[in-house]
């Protein structure tokens, strides 16, 4: 199967690879997928008091399309308000990266990662159960 130029570009030059300290108050972490399914994405968003995503980092275990989807998402969400980011649909990722039907689940996972990261940030922010989620995938 041939990869699209955009998938290759993100795979070869992934944007924003890395990690933020997961305990920082302004960081929301989302970990989605499972190792035995062959893909796990960790997306971290740095969100300011106004609810604007200032920065993003990812790490992904998965095929080239999964890596490209998460890399693209880090670019896509930067500067967006959390409500806007929550509204991002996987179809936007499919379209940008030209993903074939068998790779659509990669884009779904990336969409889930955004939601999981924002929800984690919200949980922290509302001051509810600040650290009780340790050990869980959402905390990475």
């Amino acid at each position: 199967m041939a990869y699209s130029t955009k998938v290759l570009d993100h795979y070869n030059n992934p944007r924003n690879v890395g990690s933020f300290p997961k305990d920082a108050v302004d960081v929301g972490t989302g970990v989605v997928g499972a190792p035995e399914c062959g893909d796990v994405m960790k997306l971290q968003l740095k969100i300011n008091q106004e609810g604007v995503i200032e920065d993003a980092r990812f790490k992904t275990f998965g095929c080239g399309s999964a890596i490209a989807s998460s890399s693209y998402v880090t670019e896509l969400v930067k500067g967006k308000r959390i409500e806007e980011a929550m509204a991002i649909k996987n179809s936007a990722i499919v379209q940008e990266l030209n993903l074939p039907p068998v790779k659509i689940h990669c884009s779904v996972l990336a969409e889930d990662a955004i939601k999981a990261a924002i929800n984690d940030w919200k949980t922290k922010h509302e001051g509810r159960q600040p650290q009780s989620d340790q050990g869980k995938a959402a905390q990475g």
Binding site: V32, V40, I67, H105, G135, G140
Partner: peptide, 22 residues
């Protein structure tokens, strides 16, 4: 680039993690 490698290096037992499957 792998979150699993990072977790393993942090000493997290990947089997004890509750993964969020679709």
């Amino acid at each position: 680039m792998s979150p699993l490698y990072e977790m393993a290096k942090e000493g997290i037992d990947l089997k004890s993690v509750e993964w969020k499957r679709d």
